[in-house]
Design a protein around this nucleic acid. Sequence first.
RNA 1: CGGGGCGUAGCGCAGCCUGGUAGCGCAUCUGCUUUGGGAGCAGAGGGUCGGUGGUUCGAAUCCACUCGCCCCGACCA
Length: 476
Amino acid sequence: MAKVITPRQEDYSRWYTDVIIQSQMADYSPVKGCMVIRPLGYALWEAIQRELDARFKETGHENAYFPLFIPESFLHKEAEHVAGFAPELAVVTHGGGKELEEALIVRPTSETIIYAMFAKWIRSYRDLPVLINQWANVVRWEMRTRLFLRTTEFLWQEGHTAHVSEAEAEEEALTILEIYRRFAEEHMAIPVYTGVKTESERFAGALRTYSIEALMQDKKALQAGTSHNLGQNFAKAFEVKYQTKDGTWEHVWSTSWGVSTRLVGALVMAHGDDNGVSFPPRLAPLQVVIVPIWKTDEEKSRIAEAARLAAEELKGACRVKVDLRDEVSPGWKFNEWELKGVPLRLEIGPRDLEKNQFTAVRRLDRRKTAVPRDGLLAHVGPLLEEIQADMLEKGRAFLRENTRDAKSYDELKRGLEETGGFFRAHWCGSADCEKRIKDETKATIRCIPLEGNREDGTCLRCNGASRRWVYFARSY
RNA sequence: CGGGGCGUAGCGCAGCCUGGUAGCGCAUCUGCUUUGGGAGCAGAGGGUCGGUGGUUCGAAUCCACUCGCCCCGACCA
């Protein structure tokens, strides 16, 4: 009768699929590579949207919406961009029963159509900066898919901005990177490394790509957000120009940046355990579940009433629910809400009632504490914040413990096999060394930190001079 | 696209090797007893065995083809 979740140790990727399906976050769709996001998974995405959207708006961005379909020719205007995306495009060739004169691309990202519009809207330096964000779905025909982490269609936000100078675009790209980093830590309770991508890992059409990199429990890295300084590449391809104060015409400098439903997968992989998913309180769709426990009818009425009153009291302060179902046992409810990741459970049974208390149990570690019924409200908030903080601290310790130095190529290879995780190592900067290391170890350079990594050394592979170390890891 | 695995009741599976007319657990429904970590007993309903074709008196089982999905690799947020 117990739902069976494959233990993480036995098969991590089965575990991942099991918890998502069984917690009802998502389900496989009739279309290969696509997924149905069920209410629990979608509520998480909404929580992510809510928080990020507020931060984007605080920093001056506005939401807009651009069309799903993009004329095929638009993709060809930026050479690197089309080369990067060509293999994974979905193309619409027919509409209204007729073959289209020009095929339409289902957007894999919206740079091209957005810059085409920017070209219409931007005339003067007074029109800048343009700071736009859109929440949308995109399609990339991936060869191999995985729930939330990589699906053919996925939901994301894509920010697109245009600026008067390279410095301003660079500042924008880094501002967003910082928003992503703080969101990951403060809300998702997932500490990340930030840095710039190498040339080979960078977005097709970007000058520089920055990313936040998280570590999953199987010691594989996950790119959780990206921010690109696009330079003037798209501005030139789409003739996005503005007139300066002196009356000359210049191309704008632009950025684009995004996070996707992949973040939901990151949450699952970072915090889940063999009992199910486990969500940090700030993002959890349901933060507190109250489970009453009774034997007799007399107990039932008193305890159900106490549970209801408690929920009433907490309602304004947190997302709470009372589970009054009589057809399943308390034990069943404990397991079910743990499976679904609710961070805090309040139990109230005859013994609690007698002592005028609730028994609070943390999803994180099942630690129990007694909470007095009087002033419940005053206790629950701090408890949730404590859980949030403990989850982040646990994540920090995990990241720290799984980040090592690799002084030699041998050490890197051995470390990847034996422990996994991130490795700080020297790299000369050549794409050739990078590729060979990738081919030989399956590890890639996740990012080059922007600071704190200056140190003279020699490249792992060729012994050439290196002036800074980078993060290597196997990744999703 | 290469390698592996799987399609049998809503879900998870057995049966297939060695053909004989479909079974188990969970879920569902009814009744009674239960409820502090996935309750017990009794009864009931539910399946053209992924599809097509073939072999055979007879196919879930053997053969051929086909469709779909999952996992592992090459591409990617």
